[in-house]
Computed example of a mutant assay.
Amino acid sequence: MILALSVLITFLLVMNIIQYVSRKKINNHLHEISEKLAEIIEHKTAEKVLLQTDQHSIQFLLIQINRLLAYNQKVFADYASTKDSLRKMISNMSHDLKTPLTVILGYVEKLKLDDTLSEDEKEKAILRLHEKVVGLISLLNQFFDLVKIESDDYMIPLSKISLNEICRKNVLDYCDLLLSKGLQVEIDIPDRNFYILGNEHALNRILSNLISNSIRYGSDGGVFGLTLREDKGSIAVEIWDKGKGIAEVHQDRVFDRLYTLDDARNPQFQGSGLGLSISKRLTEAMNGSIHLRSKPFEKTAFICIFKQMIY
C-alpha cells in the first residue's frame, strides 16, 4: 500500500514537471512568434514565421498564421496592382478625353472668332467638329459599357448559336473596308455548323472589335484572315494578320483597360484601348477565353475559344 502510494505520488510529480516544462516551452514559442510577427508588421516584409517545435498546438498555430500572412500579402499585392492600374487608367482616360476636347474647343473658337471664314470652310469645320463629338461620345459609351460589364451582377442571356453565320456576317460588314485597304482576305469557315452557348450581340461586338483592330494595326502586312475551327472539344475563332504585331513586352497587357501601344496615340490611329478589354470580358461572360499570339510580320492572331455544343 505504501509502495503504491509512493509510485502514485512520484507519477504525479513527474506529470507536473512535464506539464511545467511543456507550458514553459509553449510560452517561449509564443513569445518568439509574437516577436517575429511584430518584426514582419514593422518592416512590411513577405516573410513567414518559421519555428522548430514538437508541440502540435504550436505547429497548427504556425500553419494558420502563415496562411493568414500569405493571404494578407496577396491582398496587399492586389491592392497595389489595382491602384497602379487605376492610376494608369485615369491618366490614359484623361489623355483620350483631353485630345478631342482640345480639338473641339479649337474649332468652336475658330467658328466664333474668325469672321473671314467662307461658307465652305465653315461647313468643313462643322463636319470635323461633329466627327470629334461623335468620337468622344463613342469613347464615353465604351467606358461606361466596360464598367457595366465588369460589375459583379452583369449577366447576358445565352442560347444555342451557330458561330459560322456570326463570322460570315461580320466579315461581310467589313468587306468594303478590307477591299479599300487593298488587303488580301483569307477566310476559312467550314460548311458544317459549329454551335456554342453564346449571345449574338456579344459575339458581334467581340468580332467587330477584333476585326477593326486587325485592320487598324495589321494592314501593313497586306493580309487579313479569319479562321473558324474545332479545337479539342472547343470551337476557336482566330482573327489574324501579318502586320507589325505586338511586342512581347506588351502582350500581357493588351487586354488591360485603356492600355494602348505608344503608336496607337498617334493622330492616324483612333484606338481607345477599351475594345480588347470589352472583348475579353464579353468572351468570359460566355464561359470562353481569348488569347494573343504575335510574331511581327509573320502572324499576329487573337483567338477566342468557346466550348462546343453537340446535339
Rank of each mutant, 00 (worst) to 15 (best):
Y259R: 06
R253E: 10
L172C: 01
A125H: 06
F255Y: 11
T227W: 02
I206D: 07
N170H: 07
V171Y: 02
V147F: 10
I126A: 10
I166H: 06
N213I: 12
Q251W: 05
E248I: 15
I149M: 04
I215V: 15
L127F: 11
A202Q: 05
Q142D: 14
L210R: 06
R168Y: 06
R192N: 14
V171N: 04
N213D: 12
Q142F: 04
E248V: 15
N141C: 00
V171A: 09
E200R: 12
L179P: 00
Y154Q: 04
E165Y: 10
L179G: 00
F143D: 00
L163R: 05
Y259P: 02
I235G: 07
F144D: 01
D252N: 08
G182L: 07
G218H: 09
K169V: 04
Y259N: 03
Q184N: 13
L129S: 08
I166F: 06
N209L: 03
V147H: 10
F224N: 05
I156Q: 12
E131D: 15
K169Y: 10
P190W: 00
D173C: 02
D252G: 06
G243F: 07
F144V: 01
Y154G: 06
V249Y: 08
L163H: 05
D145T: 07
Q251D: 10
K132S: 14
G245P: 04
V254L: 11
S214F: 08
L228E: 11
N193R: 11
V133N: 05
V223G: 01
D256T: 08
G198P: 03
R192K: 14
G225V: 15
L210A: 09
G218Y: 14
L183P: 09
R205S: 04
H250P: 00
R229D: 13
D145K: 09
H250F: 07
L129G: 15
N170P: 01
E131W: 04
V171G: 03
N164A: 06
K122R: 13
E238V: 13
A236L: 10
I189F: 14
Q251F: 08
I211K: 03
L129P: 12
R257F: 03
N213K: 09
D176Q: 12
D176G: 01
A202G: 02
